[in-house]
């Protein structure tokens, strides 16, 4: 059997984590190709419905990543994101989505190494969880 390759959708803020991902690329750090980056201006823009939709469409996990507390370019977007992730972690597991399918991290613009490490680690974690239950579902 082919090994399961998870798909991870990552909502990353333009100013920190996206820049870190860029840096990881230009520094030739290798990380697994399972992640699709979606660049947002700020994690404060990530409406819960983006996460819900991605999981219902069959993404195996979602990463939300932005600036460290105090560093958000819109002052407090990351604090709002943290509340929404708290909310999603309360709701989604009750419908059978393992808690590990949604992850929040702070990765600053210069932390390309951390970005690569985070993706590596997350891919391993999600492989252990197995494929998302919605992959084959015709009703979403």
């Amino acid at each position: 059997m082919e090994e399961f390759e998870p798909t991870i959708i990552a909502f990353v803020c333009n100013w920190c984590t996206y820049t870190a991902a860029d840096l990881a690329g230009t520094s030739r750090l290798s990380y697994p190709p399972n992640v699709r980056l979606i660049r947002m201006m700020c994690t404060g823009m990530v409406d819960p419905k983006y996460v819900i939709k991605a999981l219902l469409e069959g993404a195996d996990a979602i990463l939300i990543s932005g600036c460290h507390p105090g560093d958000c370019h819109y002052i407090n977007g990351n604090y709002k994101a943290r509340r929404r992730v708290r909310l999603l972690k309360e709701i989604l597991p009750r419908f059978g989505f393992a808690e590990g399918r949604v992850k929040l991290t702070w990765i600053g613009a210069s932390e390309g190494v951390d970005f690569a490490a985070t993706i590596k680690e997350m891919v391993e974690e999600v492989k252990a969880l197995g494929p998302n239950q919605t992959k084959e579902q015709m009703v979403i």
Binding site: Y79, V85, R86, K103, W106, A117
Partner: peptide, 15 residues
């Protein structure tokens, strides 16, 4: 609302 110092447990730690 939000507070600066809350819900640390939902933020994944760097190793």
């Amino acid at each position: 609302i939000f507070r600066e110092d809350e819900f640390q447990e939902v933020v994944a730690k760097m190793h």
